[in-house]
Amino acid sequence: MNRPVLAFALRRLGATLLLLLALSLLVFALMYLSPGDVARNMLGTRNVTPEALAEIRARYHLDEPFLTQYWLWVSQAVTGDFGTSIRTGGPVGPLMLSRTGITAATAGLAFLLSALVGIPVGIVAAVRRGRPLDRLLVGVSVVGVSAPGFAVGLLLLYVFALGLGWFPIYGTGDGFLDGLWHLVLPAVALALGLGAFVVKLTRAAVVRELDQDYVTFARGRGLPESAVLRIVLRNAAIPIVTSLGLMVAYLFGGTVLIEVTFALPGLGALMEESVLFKDVPVVQALTLVVAFVVSVTALVVDLSYLLIDPRVRARTVRTRAVRG
């Protein structure tokens, strides 16, 4: 049983690598897809002299064939060398690294908040389906899903930072606790929409499972409600885990706006600055990193199905057995 599962995991990993390769090709092609001369684009908004253009061409091997250029770029990218930022003139890798901490902390905090609040709230709403509490929670989550993160961010800033003065307005703070303190509002703004999304998906999954015959059967032979809920949650785990996986992808979209709103110097803000400045190497590197994180999350979610659902596990084994 374990060998086929391992084989499946390896095959899935291989597929992820292929996907990343294809994505990196697309990302690299971005530079050529943007209008105008590549060398000119790479110089960004600076003054253009023929010497500078020639130097850029030489440095980026722009006279080489496309695939050779791609190979040079991607083989360096896997070692963490994403080239030089046009805007700062410094290497892209360390630049991104210096900004990663704050984004990881904001996104991580937002992820934890939306999962730790969203899943239980979704379960409560499902169990109390149709009752006033459920209506209230569903109503709030509809607002949460529809409210744009940056607008919520501005509102939070206005009320809790400007009005009540409970939280700082901007900046990152010093030290761990103060840093966390500064990240609370951005994380909440980011988590609100995502959490509402998790509430809705969790509620739908649990409601569907609560209607199943095995729930009636479990109750009918005297199992306590707590045991019934445990059985239901195990069965509802697949859609819930899937929604958490999707959330990771949404986190990156949201974090750009939130970091700009709260003036946090994270990867999102870096992305915004680089796009404005046409800093193509940085945009490429950031896009590739996001693609990497999202694909790895999808891989983890897929592999988690094997743990959660024995039917998926059995199907994997059977498919292998027939092919082999």
């Binding site: 199943q212 015959d213 095995y214 009636t216 059967f217 479990a218 009918g220 032979r221 005297g222 059985i231 195990r234 069965n235 959660i308 659902d309 024995p310 039917r311």
Partner: peptide, 16 residues
């Protein structure tokens, strides 16, 4: 009193 249902395909939890 215990209850036995019609469909043995749905009356057991599939993941336990």
């Amino acid at each position: 009193i215990a209850l036995l249902l019609q469909d043995p395909f749905t009356s057991l939890s599939p993941v336990h």
